[in-house]
Structure formats: structure tokens, C-alpha cells
Design a protein around this nucleic acid. Structure first.
Length: 470
RNA sequence: GGCGCCGUACCCAAGUGGUAAGGGAGAGGUCUGCAAAACCUUCAUGCACCGGUUCGAAUCCGGUCGGCGCCUCCA
């Protein structure tokens, strides 16, 4: 099936044609590990995951590269900017290296719990300083750089296509409108490739370079590492929509200036998660992490389902009301899956009827046309609710669909019955006796009591069943 | 000030000019001692508003109002 993706470069839907037949190289901007990821950040990695799984679903072999930015970069906060890693270090009393290690681990814990597949390569910036230096040297040799005030800058005026991705030529930019312009810059939009003149004292992450002891600019790591693992040209580069005007624009400039040819064919950007009024941001107000949601009784996969319910290029409105809806839907999906498993086993694809095939076809078409996960979910529900389709067909198609949804439904098992403490068991038994006596008032009182203890009671023809509320 | 995106039911949300997907909530029903669960039925003559193009517009064009993002680190 042909895949179409919306390419930010050109702002249009385009047929996806990889550079190499069945192989796709994709680079996704990863986290800066100076704090926990918030659920808005995580939306981006869920998008990466859906993209990767979709490519794999359609038979591509994907090399998925993601950076771990463990070199400090500037904060915002209307001050003159502080190094994020240093700030975190100062606040916690840990070394910057410890901070990076700690939050890297936290990050992987989060994405694992969201069933986001681990990237083929996760590369730390600090492990690739020499690659960055080599790339800066290439730029220097080709005359794209200048030194000023101890720093090495990229000169955007030497690169005619600068700003193509962000359509900057159409913009009346007010550089420095909100932040003082670095007086060393020849053009306000020039950017630093290598710092030797740190404006921060006690900068503990420093490396030797041909330009002196210092540290790399923010953008160079993505160019250096992506080219190292994917080659000087590759298929897809993704990231948050916020990266279009600065980060990705600068990446393109330095990469294409260094190699003298086109770098990336498809640029894909996810929109933001909106909470209340405005995006979720580490620096302002609402900062919800996955563990906050877990503490409130949601599972990470509730958030995964929530995220799949909106298209990646649309802002998604977060509220607990809509997260509740997602949780309920996910629970219903699990219940249906378990009941189907009790009734049937999957059948070979060759035994699928026309209707089942139609739903699967629509699902595939939805994903193939710019990753329309809400439409894909809708097809799944119509499949599950269609009375003309047998349980075994449903299971077969459901498992297939789940390859992209990523709930691991095939491995799903009835929650193992935890051993309840004796007191609770006694209450359940007492209630059963009351019911035998037809002492309904007593039975209902006990049911309420159990509910307060987090135990839900269901009286079925096969006897009383209970489940523990999460 | 410039650039971009968006406005679909109570909430979230899809919609590629051909007559409004899906989920959750709600309502009614079957079943049940009552519940719960399950199942059945129901839930936008309407897509911010006003014009226009068209045989036909949520979709295209213009305007108005409202929201969001970016131009600064950021997913």
C-alpha cells in the first residue's frame, strides 16, 4: 500500500518513497534529560512510535535513531538564560552527569510503560563530541563559520536556502524582540556551533577542541549523530512543531552546508498537547508527568489510548474528563478482547470474510494516509461491534490492528487474582451467606462496605465474582 | 507587528466537494432480589457567524468574531 505523509517541507501531503527499497531511516528528536518528561513531551514519542510501527506494519525495516541531549542548554524564564543541567544540578546538589543519568533512566521507564518501542539507536550527545567537532571542522573548511568572542558561529548568509522549512522568507522576523541579541553575531539569526567563552561559571561539561576548551552548540548534535547512524541522506526527521523555526531550520543549514546536498526527504512534526489554555510547559504552570497520572489511578496505557484518539498534527486538548473517557474506552477494549479470547482463537488470514477484510482495509488506509489513528480506532470499534463477524475473525483482525495501536492485546490475560486479606474475604463470604438467606439489606450494606475497600462485586449466574478496583 | 494552525453534540474527536466516523458521558429497554456487567435502542436537518462559488459546501473563496502556537529554551 502506498503511504502518504504530510511533509512540513513543502507543507503538503506527499507520497512516501524511501531512499532504499524496504529500509527507512528515521531520526526523532529526543529528550533533554534535566527533568522528568511531561505528558506533552511524551505525546511526541508516542507519535514517533506510531510512525515507526506503521512503517513496520507496511513491511519496512526501520532504523529509528533518537538523541539523548545530556549537554546542558539554556533555560528561558526571561532571565538571561541559565544552563538547564547546571540549574538542575544546583537545585538538587547532584553532578550534571548524575542528573543526566537519572533522568535518562526515568525517560526510558516512561516510554517502556507507554509501550513505545525502544529506538534502534539511542545516542547521547556527550558520547559524540568528536563527531560534532568533525562536522564543525567541515563547515569551517567550507567557509560557513566565523569566530567571534571566543565562539564559533554558523553564518546563515552563506546558506541561501536558510529558513526554507519555516518559510522564514515570508516572515517579518523580530529577532531579539524578546531576548537580547548576542552582539557577536553578524546576522541576528546566526547560531553557535561551539562555545569556548561560556557565560556560565563552573561549567563542568567541557571538551577540548580545535577552537579551545568548551562545549557544543545545541543544534550540532542532531546533525552529527543522525548522519553518523543514518548516513548523509536519510528519509524522515521528526520532532515537535516547535522545532520547525529554529532547531530544525538550523540543523538543515549546517547539515546541507557541510555535505553540499539534500539531507532529509520528509519532515514530520507533531502538534502540542494543550492543557487548560495553552501548551504544557516545564517552565509554566501545568507540568503533568506520567507518574502523576499513575498516582491518580490511571495507567500509562490510558494515556497512550488518549493520545491515539487525536491526530498527531492537531492540538490535543487534555482534561481529566477526556482522560477518563480514554481510560473507560481502553478498559472496554480489554474486556472485549478477554471475552473474545474465552470464546475463540484467531483464524488464518485466508479464512477472513469480506466484512472483516473491509474493516482491516479501512484501518490500513487510515494509517497509510498520514497516520490517522482516530479513524483507525473507529474502524476497530466497528469491527468489534459488528454482529456479522465471528469471534475468531475479530481476534485475528484485532491482533493485526494492535501491531500499531500497541496494547499487546495478544498477550493480554485476565488479571491474576490477587490474594485478598482475610478480612475482605470474610466480608465477601458473609455477603454470600446473607444472599442465601435473602437478607438483601445486609447484602447491600456489605457490598457498599466492600466498595469502600476498593472491591467491586458482581453477582453472576455462576456465583459472586469480585474485582479489585485500580 | 509578522508567520502558521484551528473553531464539528455534554466532553474528546475523525471527516481527501457527494449529503455528519468512533470513544466516553447521558436517556430508554432486556436481564437481575436490587445493583454491576453484558446486550438492544437512542443521542448534531446540523459543522463559530455572514456572504460567495457550485447541481451539491463541515470541506473551496472572501469577510467577521473567538481560540491556540511560533518569531526565546521547548515535544
Amino acid at each position: 500500500m502506498e503511504l502518504h505523509f504530510y511533509n512540513t517541507m513543502g507543507r503538503s501531503m506527499q507520497l512516501f518513497t524511501p531512499l532504499h527499497d524496504h529500509h527507512v531511516g528515521m531520526y526523532c528528536c529526543g529528550p533533554t534529560v534535566y527533568n522528568y518528561a511531561h505528558i506533552g513531551n511524551l505525546r511526541a514519542y508516542l507519535f514517533d512510535d506510531v510512525l515507526r510501527r506503521t512503517l513496520e506494519y507496511f513491511g519496512y525495516d526501520v532504523t529509528h535513531v533518537m538523541n539523548i541531549t545530556d549537554v546542558g542548554h539554556l533555560t528561558d524564564d526571561e532571565d538571561e538564560g541559565e544552563d538547564k543541567m547546571l540549574k538542575s544540578s544546583r537545585e538538587t546538589g547532584k553532578s550534571v552527569w548524575d542528573i543526566a543519568a537519572f533522568y535518562t533512566e526515568a525517560f526510558f521507564h516512561d516510554i517502556d510503560s507507554l509501550h513505545i518501542k525502544r529506538p534502534s539507536v539511542s545516542c547521547k550527545a556527550t558520547d559524540h563530541i568528536q563527531d560534532m567537532i568533525a562536522l564543525i571542522k567541515r563547515l569551517e573548511d567550507r567557509g560557513f563559520t566565523y569566530e567571534a568572542g571566543g565562539n564559533i558561529y554558523f553564518s546563515i548568509d552563506k546558506f541561501p536556502d536558510y529558513g526554507k522549512l519555516s518559510m522564514r522568507d515570508k516572515q517579518n522576523l523580530h529577532a531579539g524582540a524578546r531576548i537580547a541579541v548576542d552582539s557577536n553575531k553578524r546576522n541576528p539569526h546566526d547560531f553557535v556551533l561551539w562555545f569556548t567563552h561560556s557565560k556560565f561559571e563552573h561549567h563542568s561539561m567541557l571538551w577540548d577542541s580545535p577552537w579551545g576548551r568548551g562545549y557544543p552548540g545545541w543544534h550540532i548534535e542532531c546533525s552529527a549523530m543522525s548522519m553518523k547512524y543514518l548516513g548523509e541522506q536519510f528519509d524522515i526527521h521528526c520532532g515537535g512543531i516547535d522545532h520547525i523555526p529554529i532547531h530544525h531550520t538550523n540543523e538543515i543549514a549546517q547539515s546541507e552546508a557541510a555535505t553540499g546536498r539534500k539531507w532529509v526527504n520528509y519532515w514530520m512534526h507533531n502538534e502540542f498537547l494543550i492543557i487548560g489554555k495553552g501548551k504544557m510547559a516545564k517552565s509554566s504552570g501545568e507540568f503533568l508527568t506520567l507518574s502523576v497520572l499513575v498516582d491518580k489511578g490511571y495507567t500509562p496505557l490510558d494515556y497512550r489510548y488518549f493520545s491515539l484518539g487525536g491526530h498527531y498534527r492537531s492540538q490535543l486538548q487534555f482534561s481529566y474528563e477526556s482522560l477518563d473517557a480514554a481510560r473507560k474506552a481502553r478498559e472496554n477494549l480489554y474486556d472485549r478482547t478477554l471475552r473474545l479470547k474465552e470464546d475463540a482463537s484467531p483464524c488464518p488470514f485466508s479464512q477472513l470474510g469480506d466484512k472483516a477484510r473491509t474493516y482491516l482495509g479501512h484501518y490500513e488506509a487510515a494509517l497509510a494516509y498520514d497516520l490517522n489513528t482516530p479513524k483507525a480506532l473507529s474502524e476497530m470499534w466497528m469491527l468489534l461491534k459488528d454482529k456479522d463477524i465471528s469471534p475468531r475473525e475479530k481476534l485475528t483482525v484485532l491482533y493485526k490492528m494492535d501491531e500499531v495501536f500497541g496494547f499487546n492485546l495478544e498477550q493480554l490475560e485476565q488479571a491474576s487474582v490477587e490474594v485478598l486479606d482475610d478480612e475482605i474475604m470474610d466480608l465477601i463470604k458473609e455477603r454470600e451467606k446473607a444472599r442465601e438467606r435473602r437478607d438483601w439489606a445486609k447484602a447491600d450494606t456489605l457490598r457498599d462496605l466492600l466498595l469502600q475497600r476498593g472491591i467491586s462485586i458482581k453477582d453472576t449466574p455462576e456465583g459472586t465474582k469480585w474485582t479489585k478496583n485500580v
